[in-house]
């Protein structure tokens, strides 16, 4: 995958964007030096990029996250070092934005600089099996809300449609059609369709831009 200097990931909460942010940051670190991962998620204190702190340090990625992320402190704080992403033009960054328009408000703070520099991609992570993004029009609505709040325009879609552990090849193949409909409606390319390693083995070659994800650890429940 080819990266711009800044890669921004948005998506309705539960779309899987944090997982993808972690994967793309690792991929980016293989191509470039000085990689930053910025956790701007002020919405959900339960699932955070900070869960992958070890993955980041092993790959030499600098994680910028609120000091309160993953602590028991339930406040929507932003990391003080977040401006490094726009101040240090030699840095390559992946930004994980919180779900929905309220989450994207935090992005608006960085928007003037990101738009002026114009060396970014902003991807919408979509999952057609999530209840509030089941139709292309639902996706459109959420994207417009995020764009208004975040003040940055989307440049592409990442199709991460899945049903958790029950996802089968047929589900992914269905979702590709869904993603294409979204792509047509929004006039944006589907840059990746992401699947777990097992489905990647089954579907490799059958879907354009198929990308295998390494999943964050789940508890044994």
């Amino acid at each position: 995958m080819e990266f711009k200097r800044i890669t921004i990931l948005c998506g309705h909460y539960g779309s899987g964007k944090t997982n993808i942010a972690v994967n793309l940051a690792v991929e980016l670190s293989k191509q470039k030096n000085n990689v930053l991962a910025l956790d701007l998620d002020i919405v959900n204190p339960y699932f955070r990029t900070k869960d992958s702190a070890d993955t980041f340090s092993q790959n030499g990625i600098k994680l910028i996250a609120s000091q309160y992320a993953n602590s028991n402190v339930d406040i929507p704080a932003l990391p003080q070092e977040m401006y490094a992403v726009i101040d240090d033009k030699s840095a390559n960054a992946v930004i994980d934005v919180g779900g929905d328009d309220r989450g994207a408000l935090a992005l608006g703070r960085l928007a003037p600089s990101i738009n002026e520099e114009n060396n970014y991609n902003m991807f919408m992570v979509i999952n057609c099996f999530r209840p509030l993004t089941k139709t292309p029009n639902d996706v459109l609505e959420v994207m417009r809300e995020i764009e208004v709040a975040g003040k940055i325009k989307f440049t592409g879609l990442i199709n991460n449609s899945n049903l958790g552990r029950e996802t089968e090849s047929a589900d992914v193949l269905y979702s590709v059609k869904f993603a294409q409909e979204c792509s047509k409606l929004l006039n944006l390319p589907v840059v990746l369709t992401t699947v777990n390693q097992k489905l990647f083995a089954e579907l490799n070659g059958k879907i354009e831009n198929l990308y295998p994800l390494t999943l964050q650890n789940n508890n044994v429940i």
Binding site: F129, R130, D171
Partner: peptide, 16 residues
């Protein structure tokens, strides 16, 4: 295709 949806527990309560 599956007729299921992927939901958080909280969302499942609200939708139900």
């Amino acid at each position: 295709m599956s007729d299921k949806v992927l939901m958080k527990g909280n969302e499942a309560i609200a939708e139900a």
